[in-house]
Structure formats: C-alpha cells, structure tokens
Amino acid sequence: MSTQPTTARHSVTRNSRRKFLLDSARAGGAATLLALGVGLYSRQSVSLPASAIRPPGALDEDDFLGACVRCGLCVRDCPFDTLKLATFGDKVTTGTPYFTARDVPCEMCDDIPCVKACPTGALDHSLENIDNARMGLAVLIDEENCLNFQGLRCDVCYRVCPVIDKAITLEMKHNARSGSHALFIPTVHSDHCTGCGKCERACVLEDTAIRVMPFELAKGELGHHYRWGWKEKSKAGKSLVAPDVEHQYNMPQGQSYDLQGEGLIIEGKNAAGADDASPFGGSPLDTLNSNNFNTRGAQE
C-alpha cells in the first residue's frame, strides 16, 4: 500500500509529461504546417502584376509588404477614388492599396493626402513634392499602333502629362514613309516621369499604346563600367583618347563641306540657287528618287 501511490505518482508525472510533449509537438506541427503554407503563398503573391501601381511614396515592394498594415486609410483619403484595396483572390497582395491607371490614374494632388494618411510609413512621409513620386514609369510600348509613330499629330499623352515637356517630350524625327514629313515621337524621360498614368488613361487607342510599368520592368541598367564618351569629353573639356584631329574633307576644287553647318558649299554659288550645273536638284528627295546615281554609274 505504501509504495503504490509513489509509483502511481511517478506514472502520473510521466504520463502528464508525455502528454505535454505530445500536445506541444502536435500544436507545433500544426503551426509549422500553417506557416509553411502561408509562407509559400506569400512568396507567390509578392510579384505585383504590371498593371497594378502602388500609391505615391510606396516603399520598394518587398519593404512595402512588411510595412503596410492594410488599413485602407490611403484609399479613404484619395479624393479621386483612384486607390483601392486588393481583395482576397486578386493578383495583388490581399488588402494592399493599388490603382489601375487605365481605369483611374493618379491625379497627383499637391498635398499628397494618401501619403499623409498612411499611419505606418509604408507610403514614405518624406515625399513632400508629388513631382518626386516614382509610382512607375510610362513606356510607349506599342510603336506599331501609336498614332504619332505613324506621323499623325495625336499628341494626347504628351498634352495630358502633368509634367509636360519634362516627363514627355515630342522628339522630331524624319518621316521615312512620306519622305517629306516629320514624326513627333512622344518620348518619356525617367528622371521626370512620376508614373501617374494620365497618359495611359488618355491614350485614344482601343487599348493603350503607352503604359505605366514598374521601374524594374521598364528600366534597363547600364554596365557599371560603361562611360558615354561625349559626356566624359565635355566633363573633361577635351578628348580623353587622343588630341582631336581637325576634320578634313577631300572635296572637288571649289567645294567644301561644313559638317555641322551649311553642309556642301559650292564656292561662287548661292546655296539656294537651283538652276546651276549641279547634278543635284533643289530637293534631295528628287535626287534620290530619280536614280541619277545609278544611271550615271552605268554610263561610266
């Protein structure tokens, strides 16, 4: 009788210790399984679809996902209902704010209310000038359908750009199709484009030819050892390779060539004079089209 309680107590403690360990292992196992599942799911869902743009001032996507508490205060303070919270099942991480520029672009409010509303700093409060926002980068992605690339003067993306003439400029190029017209190519400059998406929204095409893309998709990166020769030269004030050689053209007598000025200079002739003995007509295009060069080559 006297030994029995002791052994029983031993078996109780052993049993309860065993039960405790088993319970803990089971609970720990369940938690680990859950964490693994959620972890894998979170790895999958970190890649933001290219069409979803974060609000101004958003940290880098990785940091953003650790900082954003999914409260929606930025959404509430957006006066244009641009921002929305991703719901479960969206391709954007559940509960985080984004906008789709083709639907509603960012209006680039001067006081940036969405950033002010963010309680955690997932939208960086140091962003005080909206022109410094870098939500993404507009890319004229479809040159085949862009009207300006065909020589038309659509210019809508350029006109609506809030940073007009800095973020988008029209670059004049020769129109090789007509031969006599210009192309005004809308050209985005990454040092000024905020990624607001107004150009994407405004594009008159059925589907837009200019799209705001995440920076990492839109931008390449120069080899770190690359140097642009002309920039280095102007920085140094002289050629860095060898002393510049004076340019010489071996021209027929009485003719000279001015590379960055008038071009061909025929002495004693007015540059505008067309009725002379020159084989070239007044219009360079006529000359090219008349095939003069080929026929002369054949006669000789």
Partner: peptide
C-alpha cells in the same frame, strides 16, 4: 495552446520573409 504556436509562427514568418504574411 496551438494558437500560441501559430502566433509565434506568424512572427517568425514575418521575420523570415520580410512581409506580413499572416495578413494574406
């Protein structure tokens, strides 16, 4: 007590992934 293990797991998840995974 499983909930406390899960609580710890969510915090470790945040630490490892750098994101707030549990909120997914």
């Amino acid at each position: 007590n499983t909930r406390y293990w899960i609580l710890a797991a969510t915090l470790i998840l945040a630490l490892v992934t750098g994101g707030i995974g549990w909120e997914l």
